[in-house]
Amino acid sequence: MMKEGERYELIFSGSGGQGLILAAIIFAEAAGVHDGFYVCQSQSYGPEARGGYSKAEVIMSKNPIDYPKAIRADLLLSMNQASCDHCFEVLKPEGLLVVDASLVHQIPTNRSVSIPFTEIARKSAGKEMVANMVALGAVGRISQSVSLKSLETALVARVPKRTVEMNLKALHAGIEAAEAVDLSALPKTIVPEDDEL
């Protein structure tokens, strides 16, 4: 778990319209409003409303946050190849990459988890549109930095009323998919121990 003075940094990346900023906001609200962490959530995107790049960051800490952007990310979610290529360099060597298995094929690290978010969204909730919520559930479960109950509460508060049920289904499907992942089987760092000598 996070220690005093530490930062935990997540990046949600993909293309515009995939709903990554909303996913980051819900994550930040769960961690900040409900779990009591200090959080900073920011985003950058291109001028296009759909398509183009989209990146959202969440910084969590038990202490007030000074620098509001990611310095070295602990977790990077990439929902397409371009964003994975673009954001990967910010990921810590011991950080974790989470990708959409059907959209990201060239994976730059073996500390990575591939889950077919878009496919799961289609099967579980009937709409690819909610792949962001599937990914959110998976990231929440994998990062273990936020309570899943808080994620649910924040999601219900942030999505349109008539879509709550569909989004919750997607979130739970994502959590479930992540439970099947054995994180202990991943290498601890991508930097071979020899390199540190």
């Binding site: 906001i25 409003v33 959080v39 900073c40 920011s42 946050i65």
Partner: peptide, 9 residues
């Protein structure tokens, strides 16, 4: 722009 668009609790 950074302060304006950053969300904090």
């Amino acid at each position: 722009e950074v302060v304006a668009h950053t969300r904090e609790t």
